[in-house]
């Protein structure tokens, strides 16, 4: 066990170093793409908390992505709020709305929650278009870009600066999540996922934890959406379609929905897989995503939590099955 822990620290350190030096060795547009990887990883981390750890599915996290993006755009454009304040505010707005949806989700189980959040995802673009005075209608809003602070001017490009800011935020959130999920909070969330009745009898209040998980997860999606909005330079309703929500779920499922590494891998998949295959055909990313999801579900059966564990820890799962049999 301690050997594994040392390995973990090492791999995190190597990764951090890689993130630090990478912009020196890759062209500026690659830093730009890696910024998106960081943002998507943060968003998917939200799903790791909500779906992977707590067992609540959300097919509507694209909506929170949108709320984060629009919050930054509106705060910057209409109120002149600077980046360092608008991103946390975006997280708060998105998190509060997430808490609201979380309260609703308390009464919906499994398939019903999937259905309701899917409807949210589909309804998001037309809702955003409707409130023109706030959201700029179908044209959307421009988001001011982020330029490096005084001393770094000329040393690094604004793409590189956003890259570093993003990955510092991502690193902090991954660390925070790792600590929180490793302790009491994570145990409670997992207990509720595995057996709610048993969790109650151990003194865990599922209502409180489940609502909190929804808000927490939505706040991450909001931060991710805020970063993507700053990187793209604008927000528009057609960015936040059901396809975005499904891409986040796909990234989470393919990456591994109940580990932090899965979120990181999911971010890589969501950013680079479309770039890689859309040269074949603009529709190729969808086909690849879709078939991959189907194959994952068929060949790793046994319930979503288990099948997803199997994606990440095939050996551990096999060992567990072995234990169960013997």
């Amino acid at each position: 066990m301690s050997g594994m822990r040392v390995n973990k620290y090492w791999s995190v350190a190597v990764l951090a170093l890689l993130v630090l030096v990478l912009p020196r060795f890759v062209p500026s547009y690659a830093a730009f793409e890696l910024t998106f990887v960081g943002a998507y990883a943060i968003g998917i981390l939200g799903l790791v908390i909500l779906t992977g750890t707590n067992g609540q599915i959300s097919l509507g996290h694209g909506a929170f992505f949108g709320i984060g993006g629009y919050a930054v755009a509106i705060l910057a454009q209409k109120l002149g709020v600077p980046f360092w304040a608008s991103v946390p505010l975006a997280a708060i707005v998105s998190g509060i709305l997430g808490l609201g949806l979380g309260l609703v989700a308390l009464r919906l189980e499994g398939v019903y929650l999937a259905l309701a959040t899917f409807a949210l995802a589909v309804a998001t673009p037309s809702t955003l278009k409707h409130f023109k005075s706030l959201t700029g209608g179908s044209q959307g809003l421009a988001v001011p870009s982020l330029s490096p602070p005084g001393p770094l001017h000329g040393v690094i490009t604004s793409e590189q600066w956003l890259y570093y800011v993003t990955w510092v935020i991502a690193g902090a959130l991954f660390l925070l999540t790792s600590i929180a999920l490793g302790g009491r909070l994570g145990r409670a969330l997992r207990a509720i996922r595995d057996n709610e009745v048993a969790a109650i009898s151990f003194g865990v209040n599922p209502q409180r934890y489940k609502t909190f998980a929804f808000g927490w997860s939505a706040a991450y999606a909001g931060i991710a959406g805020a970063i993507v909005a700053i990187a793209t330079g604008f927000v528009s309703p057609d960015t936040y379609t059901v396809a975005l929500s499904l891409a986040l779920v796909t990234g989470a499922v393919l990456g591994g929905i109940d580990t932090l590494w899965g979120a990181l891998l999911g971010g890589v998949i969501v950013e680079f897989l479309p770039l890689l295959v859309q040269k074949i055909n603009p529709a190729a990313p969808s086909v690849v995503y879709g078939i991959a999801l189907v194959l994952f579900m068929i060949f790793l059966p046994g319930g979503i939590a288990r099948s997803i564990q199997a994606v990440i820890h095939p050996l551990r799962l096999r060992r567990e099955i072995h234990h169960a049999r013997s």
Partner: peptide, 11 residues
């Protein structure tokens, strides 16, 4: 399988 597995497959 669990309903959510089927849901993800349908997605």
């Amino acid at each position: 399988a669990a309903p959510l597995t089927v849901v993800i497959l349908c997605l």
